[in-house]
């Protein structure tokens, strides 16, 4: 009996030790394990060709207006500066809810994205609207802080009312091959998020290769990310079509294997309506229309909204617009 118990507990323990990080957080995970170098390789030139082809899509007329409104509704309107103040944040929140009141029938943005210290201000400012509050955390943007600080940072933002947490991964650890560390960190932050949805920023500009981007995507997804996100906006290059495509394919493969949807957020560097529409085409042609809502796709951007607005007004009036007529908050 004792021997039986002993062997039983041994098997049980080893099972836990082996499977714990993944099984704990994603009971529906398949046996795919990005920590064991199983991410598929990515050919950069092939990705560039695919992206170039997506960029040849021509979006006109009704589909363009529909697409542009969708873009507005997918924006995480963002301010992440050392000089951010409650005043600045409040004005941006107003903009998020009133993109261009001169033109009725426009959506709000999806969310506003701020530092943890600004969450409570923002929360108050958007009260009564559908606009969500996203907060960066984990010692954004570098992530160079102890785990305890990162957890506190996250809990503080959530306690202040953040609906969504945008964390950064430890790129240094990733690049030195400590994938388990990266995985465990994401899993711990996910736990600290509680009900808040977790966006995991890979900072692809520092990962450099698309193979790394793919691997980091797989790790983040398996560690519990609700969204994967390209960039902090503080490192160049930030979001590119190539990087986003690579991440979308990681989401696609995960969905094909498990039926679980993961969201995608390219952030930084997308400032024109045309570019944003290309991203939507890419989502449509890779993941499908199911991802074309702000529940599953976001743009992290500060200046995109006005270009989209100018395009919408141009489409409806036939007259090219001036930025003087669109508020810059």
């Amino acid at each position: 009996m004792a021997a039986f118990l002993l062997s039983f507990s041994y098997v049980f323990l080893s099972l836990i030790l082996l499977k714990m990080p993944m099984s704990k957080l994603k009971p529906f995970s398949s046996d795919f394990d990005p920590l064991r170098h199983e991410s598929p390789s990515v050919d950069k030139v092939g990705v560039e060709e695919r992206v170039a082809r997506i960029q040849t899509r021509s979006i006109k007329n009704e589909s363009k207006i529909q697409g542009l409104k969708m873009v507005l509704n997918m924006i995480d309107l963002t301010t992440l500066e050392g000089k951010d103040t409650p005043g600045k944040v409040k004005q941006m929140c107003y903009k998020a809810m009133h993109l261009h009141d001169a033109h009725p029938g426009l959506p709000t943005t999806a969310a506003v994205c701020v530092y943890p210290s600004m969450v409570s201000v923002a929360k108050e400012a958007v009260k009564g609207s559908d606009v969500k509050i996203a907060s960066v955390s984990t010692a954004f943007p570098s992530g160079q802080a102890p785990m305890s600080v990162k957890l506190d940072d996250t809990r503080f933002a959530v306690d202040c009312g953040a609906d969504e947490i945008d964390m950064v991964i430890s790129r240094g650890k990733f690049l030195s091959g400590e994938y388990q560390f990266v995985f465990d960190e994401i899993a711990a932050i996910k736990e600290a998020c509680g009900k808040a949805r977790l966006k995991v920023i890979l900072e692809t500009g520092e990962l450099v290769t698309l193979d790394n981007v793919r691997k980091a995507s797989d790790i983040a997804i398996h560690a519990g990310a609700d969204f994967i996100k390209t960039s902090t906006g503080k490192v160049q290059p930030a979001a590119t079509m190539q990087v986003t495509y690579t991440m979308l394919m990681a989401i696609k493969d995960h969905f094909d294997r498990t039926g679980v949807m993961i969201g995608m957020k390219p952030a930084g560097g997308i400032s024109t309506a045309k570019a944003a529409l290309h991203y939507l085409v890419m989502v449509k042609e890779t993941l499908g229309d199911a991802w074309l809502s702000n529940e599953w796709f976001r743009f992290g951007a500060s200046s995109l909204a006005n270009d989209v607005l100018m395009q919408i007004i141009k489409m409806e009036t036939g007259v090219y617009q001036s930025s003087d007529y669109f508020s810059i908050d």
């Binding site: 969708m70 039926g259 993941l287 229309d289 199911a290 074309l292």
Partner: peptide, 18 residues
Amino acid sequence: MAKKTDKKLSGWDFSPSP
């Protein structure tokens, strides 16, 4: 394998662009 997502959910399609 998971089922394909229903494409008509939001139905964003390209207008003709000849």
